[in-house]
Write a protein that binds this DNA or RNA. Structure first.
Lengths: 142, 142
DNA sequence: TGACACCCTGAAGCTACTATAGGGTCAACA
DNA sequence: TGTTGACCCTATAGTAGCTTCAGGGTGTCA
């Protein structure tokens, strides 16, 4: 099958397919005499796997690890579970961060109930009065 | 004050300061004869405001809107509240998305309790069996 | 005079793609 | 036979919000 069919089978665009090939997630397929990419069912499975991982918000790096593990049938799946558990932990952590953020935003929002001049807007004052802290870099991609 | 002092006052790097200038969030300051940037207290306030907004996970676009509103003291703060409320809504929505994701990941995780060969790993099978859906693009930056 | 901390510009790198430009291939139809 | 249209190709640049790097200049102290 050609790249357009493959893309449709995995519900993504042809650009994404070519991108995954360039990134080494999808192996380069055979070519027709006219230099068109030619794919088989193995490619469909692999691409769908990648897209499903992305739908679960995994990073390219996590997917790369999963694929490498899946490619070695001799292995046990302990390492797979580990990658998965780490991903779940990332999601949990991001939820906690956002819940905290929501609290902070809510209490700032309550400082401006009525419409007033911007100079005396409680929200703008609340922002200005925050303690500037060095930005803690995110350890997740979510 | 020079760029290094300004950066320290707002707990960010000098590169970030120069970046904000290039993006138009921070107005270009005067220069010394040696072409060094020279800042005053107004710059400190504005930079701290920007960094505090970023600490609240606002996008550059949201910050740009807030600054434009704050720069017009004649205005009422209704528009400010609107930007803020929209941001809160973004956070809420992202939390809901991640909660859903967490549910999905949890039920997949339960399909592989014991260590086994990767071929029969419940997690890998669960991923492979997912319905590939076209990716819905995120309407928030979070 | 040298060492060192600080400043300057411009360009490239990060993630996961998307979009664009400028071209080639192939089957069908007039 | 020519041409239209759907598809394919490569290479490059753009997105957000910075960070890092290369290759220089400036200012102060010993």
């Amino acid at each position: 099958m050609k790249i357009g069919e493959l893309a449709q089978a995995a519900q993504c665009t042809v650009e994404t397919v070519r991108y995954y090939e360039k990134e080494g997630l999808l192996p380069p397929p055979a070519r027709t005499p006219a230099n068109f990419r030619q794919y088989g069912t193995g490619h469909v499975e692999r691409l769908r796997f990648i897209r499903n991982c992305r739908a679960l918000d995994m990073s390219q790096e996590e997917i790369r690890r999963l694929l490498a593990l899946a490619d070695q049938p001799a292995l046990g799946c302990g390492a797979v579970n580990e990658v998965f558990d780490q991903h779940i932990a990332h999601v949990d952590e991001r939820i906690r961060e956002l819940e905290q953020l929501k609290q902070a935003l809510g209490s700032m929002r309550r400082r401006c109930q009525s419409e007033q001049a911007v100079d005396s807007c409680g929200i703008l004052h609340a922002i200005a009065e925050m303690e500037s802290e060095p930005r803690h870099d995110r350890h997740t991609h979510l």
